[in-house]
Design a protein around this nucleic acid. Structure first.
Length: 279
DNA sequence: CAATCAACCTGGGTGC
DNA sequence: TGCACCCAGGTTGATT
């Protein structure tokens, strides 16, 4: 489940391999709908051919490649999408839907078991629209604890749902939200508008620490994530709450068995003793 | 306007 | 061993 650290891992490894290269051609598999073009009347294959990749940035869980024709290629991995760097003559990867052939003789391959991920060609104003729709990056210095608290104050509902809402803060998914709430001992169902400034301060610190460490460890490989060179991330072994409710997993702080509930339609693991509602 | 939920998918796991 | 289910979750869009 690629969240911010996994997408950033992909971005940083992709950057040296594809920036400055020219797309010579694109080959699609059976699921050709994986590549879409938001600009009416333009064929996505023609748009990409003979175009240079100028840069690769990340916004939330989106990868954004700037192209020399003024357009952008936005990639979202959703749950099981993978981007791989391979020699052009290597066989298709599992669940491969697209192969982007580069002038350097390597391919950028996109595979996705569940066909949720997309490669989308958009104009600059669509990138701006996307960026405006998303909340601030967790590492944005302008995102102070008091700014985040104001955001959470205006929002009724549960804190876990607020943290998963990409329009409030961008890049968090189920894994890192459960981890951050566990670390700060906040109950996932606590009303988001009832958090104290001190709680929000600690929550924001925890989010940043957890994300930074996960990036250093090249992401969390829980089920299927791998980086563009097919390597798993190292962060799964450091998770303290997410996924631990199986097999009678216990809280590493107090040994109470973890509890599993559903919040906002997502499986949620928390310690019923350490994590409590306040206010 | 905001919260909720189905839909999109399919491999892997569970229960019978 | 086989089969029928159910679950995982990021985002969109319909509904309440």
């Amino acid at each position: 489940m690629p969240e911010l650290p996994e997408v950033e891992t992909v971005r940083s490894l992709l950057e040296p391999a594809i920036v400055g290269r020219t797309i010579t051609d694109v080959t699609l598999g059976d699921f050709s709908g994986v590549l879409e073009c938001r600009i009416p009347g333009l064929d996505p294959l023609c748009v990409l051919r003979n175009v240079e990749i100028l840069n690769v940035t990340r916004r939330g869980k989106y990868l954004i490649a700037g192209l020399s024709n003024g357009l952008f290629l936005i990639v979202h991995l959703r749950m099981t999408g993978r981007l791989l760097i391979l020699p052009a003559d290597s066989p298709p990867v599992r669940f491969q839907h697209a192969a982007i052939h580069l002038s350097s003789g390597v391919d950028l391959r996109f595979g996705d078991q569940r066909k949720f991920g997309r490669l989308t060609i958009v104009a600059a104003e669509d990138v701006a629209r996307l960026t405006n729709r998303l909340g601030p990056e967790p590492f944005d210095r302008r995102l102070t604890a008091s700014v985040l608290r104001d955001t959470l104050q205006r929002r009724p509902g549960k804190i876990k749902n607020a943290l998963l809402d990409q329009s409030l803060i961008a890049g968090l998914g189920n894994i890192y939200v459960d981890e951050a709430l566990f670390r700060t001992r906040i109950h996932p169902e606590q009303a988001s508008n009832s958090l104290s400034l001190d709680q929000v301060r600690r929550l924001l610190q925890a989010i940043r620490l957890i994300l930074r460490l996960a990036i250093l460890r090249q992401g969390t490989t829980f089920a299927s994530f791998e980086n563009p060179y097919g390597e798993a991330g190292e962060n799964a072994g450091f998770l303290r709450a997410y996924g631990k409710s199986r097999d009678g997993g216990r809280c590493p702080r107090c040994r109470t068995p973890f509890q599993k509930i559903v919040v906002g339609g997502r499986g949620t693991t928390f310690c019923p003793r350490c994590q409590f509602r306040t206010g």
